[in-house]
């Protein structure tokens, strides 16, 4: 147990320190995020009344997180391939689950750094206000971040272990994340004031169509997939 905790801390610290010193991926992520936000901001301009701003803003946030996140997760195991670092990682007296959790934690932290920079930019450039509901806003962003990172970490290991191209990662992660995107967009639209707190006539189940339901769905999604990825990670690392 103590070994596990020490190893966990070591891997997280290593990943974050290496990134902050070498700056391999954060600058690329920022530029990609900026480009996505900029292009969608220009597209939103074509809607005359400004009605599209919350929709385009919410879409810009998730698209920027998804693609920049995948850019980062791809590097997360690609760096381990160089100089046989992967062997060192596997030889460490840690179980696969701990390695997964450490990698996930490092990825969540780095995606959060990215979010902290991009979110204010989106709010400003799209002229959106969240009406003082900061806590809920941060909760939605963190839940989205965890969902993107948990699947991205698992499949980036798979893609690296099998030496296939990184483009595979994007379709594999996107397709599994697909069902999280509807509630995630729904939650942001409620916070941006584009949708009422509860929308009648949504779907046929009683609990959907409200901000709380969207939040609950995202919590369930994150719980299911982070546990599943944690359990299945060992299978992927086997040689």
């Amino acid at each position: 147990m103590k070994h596990g905790w020490l190893g966990f801390k070591a891997i997280v610290a290593k990943d974050i320190v290496v990134e902050l010193r070498a700056k391999q991926v954060l600058p690329t992520m920022f530029v990609l995020g900026l480009l996505i936000v900029f292009i969608l901001r220009l597209a939103a301009e074509s809607m005359p009344t400004g009605a599209g701003m919350p929709i385009m803003g919410a879409a810009a946030l998730w698209i920027a997180f998804l693609f920049s996140g995948m850019l980062m997760q791809e590097r997360s195991f690609a760096t381990e391939k160089e100089d046989g670092c992967m062997d060192g990682l596997l030889l460490a007296p840690l179980d696969a689950g701990t390695i997964y959790l450490a990698k996930l934690c490092a990825n969540v932290v780095m995606l959060s750094i990215f979010e902290a920079a991009v979110v204010p930019l989106v709010l400003l450039s799209f002229g959106l206000s969240i009406d003082g509901r900061w806590l809920e806003f941060v909760a939605v962003l963190v839940l989205g971040n965890l969902g993107i990172s948990s699947l991205g970490t698992l499949f980036s290991a798979a893609v690296q272990v099998s030496r296939s191209q990184g483009s595979l990662l994007s379709i594999v992660v996107l397709v599994v994340l697909m069902p999280m995107m509807t509630p995630a967009l729904f939650a942001l639209l409620v916070l941006f004031g584009a949708l009422p707190e509860e929308v009648a006539g949504f779907g046929s189940l009683a609990f959907v169509g409200s901000f709380k339901a969207a939040l609950g769905y995202m919590i369930a999604f994150d719980a299911v997939f982070s546990v599943a990825c944690w359990l299945l990670f060992g299978v992927i690392l086997q040689e």
Binding site: P183, G203, A213, V224
Partner: peptide, 16 residues
């Protein structure tokens, strides 16, 4: 993982 997504898919679609 894909099969775990199946119930998620059905529930998420209710937000539409």
């Amino acid at each position: 993982i894909a099969f775990l997504d199946v119930p998620m898919v059905y529930i998420s679609a209710r937000f539409i």
